[in-house]
Amino acid sequence: MQADKVIQVHNLVKKFGNFTANDALSFDVYRGEIFGFLGANGAGKTTTIKILTGLSKPTSGDISVAGFDVYKQSDDIKRNIGYMSQKFSLYEDLSIVENIRLYGGIYGLSRKEIKNRTNALLSRLGIEDKANVLIGSLPLGWKQKIAFSVAIVHNPDIVFLDEPSSGVDPITRRQFWDMIYEAAHQGITVFVTTHYMDEAEYCDRVAILVSGKMVALDSPGKLKHDYDEDSMEGVFVKLARGKRSFVKNNK
C-alpha cells in the first residue's frame, strides 16, 4: 500500500437486484488532492460515496479508504473521514455553537479541543457574534459553509462531499470552493460529487460517471484538451452522448 494513495478502488461493483449502480469502477485518490466525481443524477455517484464512507457495502471489488479495508475495518475508516451530505444535515433547532459541539463530541474530541476549534472556526468564518444563532435562521450559503467546517472539525484524512452545493448560487459556490481549497492545503483530501460543470473545473482531477460506468478520469485541463472542448460541460456532453449511443448499439 502506498502512503500517498488515500483511497484505492479496484473493480468496485454494486448491484441492487438486477440494476448495476456501479459497474467495475477503478481509481486511486492521492493525499491532498481535490477529486471530483462528475455525473448526471442517477449515474451512481451517491452509491459510490456511500460505499466509501461505510454507509453501504459493495457487491464486489477491493476497496481501501485511509488505508483501511471497507469490508472489515469500516469503524477505522469512519474515525478518519468527514462527510457532508446534499442536505447539509445541521440541526436547524440548534445554534451554530451547539452544532459544532455536537459533532465534535460525536467524533470524540476532548472538551478543550472542541472549545479551541469552535473558536477557530467562528473566527475563520467571521461569525463570532452569531455563535448562538439558530441554524434554521441562517441563509443557505452560510449553512453550507458551517456544514463544511463541521464536517472537518475533527481534522479527518479525507472529507466526502455529496453534491455539497446544490441549490446555492454560483457566487456563494465560489466562496465555498475557497474553503475547500483551504482544507486541501491543510492536507485534507477532498472527494466531491457534483453535477455542476463549473465545480468540475475547480477539481484537481475529475472522474466522469455515465450510467454506473467510469468513462473518463483526468485533470480538467487534460480532459478538455483530449476531447477538444473549451469547457467541462462540452466534455461531459460528448461523453454522455457517446455512452448513450454505445448503450443503444449494445441492444
Binding site: 464512507t53 461505510g54 469512519k78 457532508m84 444535515s89 445541521l90 460525536i106
Partner: peptide
Amino acid sequence: GSMEVLLVSS
C-alpha cells in the same frame, strides 16, 4: 439527512 451523517461518524 442528518441520520446519514450520524451513521458515517464513528
